[in-house]
């Protein structure tokens, strides 16, 4: 906008201030509560801890098996992200660089799965996993493998779409030059396309990791005590009859840290990827 009047600038300050308070209040609650002794969170709310303490950060590891949840979440989200990016890269490369029959059908089908509610395939997927386990002995229900497989498909449609869009913006001359030099399609992909598409790949990886790290519905049905992820474990922590809110807040902060830090560090790639892939 060109020279906004003072009234607009004041309105802007007021609106953005209110929004900042709305956005940041839960974060402040998390931070302040995680430093409180137990009696502070059992009485009426107070902003400042009466006796600031780091105790909750120590206790969270023994009150619930947080380290196990953490490991499970890391393995599941990490594997799902790696596989999803790899598969999306192959598919996105095919969609962007090749003209073949069924190309449109493929993109439309894959993208449309994104609109269906998870609850729609939760029940059948649960039964299919149980049946596969009964008939072949491959444990998908209750295992990390089943959850990895499920999560990788959650981020796949958007990732394929975004990577195809990103690859479209990389000049084809690059591939063609490599192909003239005698590179096969796979070598071209690995040596030429992947380095050029790195920002897009990072964006997709951040998205896939966040999707897997935060998912609750399928994790609550498809895992057991051994394979429980943070999303389910933390909820159990917060719904005990006597909730240690200071510990729950400390745990929430600790498990948010990896994703939030990653997101803030890599957000410019995500925005760039969105701009290249989506907003066209």
């Amino acid at each position: 906008m060109i020279d906004p009047p003072a009234s607009f600038r004041w309105l802007r300050r007021a609106v953005l201030l209110v929004l900042a308070v709305f956005t940041l209040t839960p974060v402040a609650v998390m931070l302040s509560s995680s430093l409180k002794p137990l009696q502070d969170v059992q009485g009426p709310w107070r902003w400042i801890p009466s006796h600031p303490t780091l105790r909750p950060y120590v206790d969270i590891w023994t009150t619930v098996p947080l380290a196990r949840y953490f490991t499970n979440s890391l393995i599941v989200a990490g594997s799902a992200t790696g596989l999803s990016v790899l598969i999306a890269l192959l598919a996105g490369y095919a969609v962007s660089r090749h003209r073949f029959r069924g190309r449109r059908l493929f993109t439309v089908t894959v993208l449309s799965t994104q609109m269906f509610p998870g609850i729609l395939f939760l029940l059948p997927l649960f039964l299919i996993f149980v049946s596969i386990g009964n008939s072949t002995g491959i444990a998908l229900y209750g295992s990390r493998g089943g959850l990895i497989l499920t999560y990788l498909t959650f981020s796949l449609p958007f990732s394929i779409w975004m990577l195809a869009g990103y690859l479209d913006s990389i000049p084809r001359d690059l591939d063609e030059a490599a192909s003239v030099d005698g590179c096969g399609p796979i070598r071209t992909l690995v040596q030429i396309v992947v380095p050029a598409a790195m920002p897009g790949i990072i964006a997709v990886a951040v998205y896939a990791f966040m999707t897997a790290w935060g998912e609750v519905l399928f994790a609550s049905v498809l895992t057991n005590d051994e394979t429980r992820t943070l999303a389910v474990g933390l909820q159990g922590y917060a719904t005990q009859t006597d909730v240690y809110w200071n510990q729950v807040m400390a745990a929430s902060l600790v498990v948010s840290l990896p994703v939030v830090a990653g997101f803030l560090l890599l957000q410019r790639y995500l925005v760039a990827g969105l701009t290249a892939g989506a907003v066209k």
Partner: peptide, 21 residues
């Protein structure tokens, strides 16, 4: 960056915090 926080936070930690609030 502050405005993007609710989007970046894992849904379960954010909503648990609201439950407390």
């Amino acid at each position: 960056a502050a405005f993007l926080l609710p989007y970046a936070l894992p849904v379960f930690t954010a909503v648990i915090t609201w439950t407390f609030m």
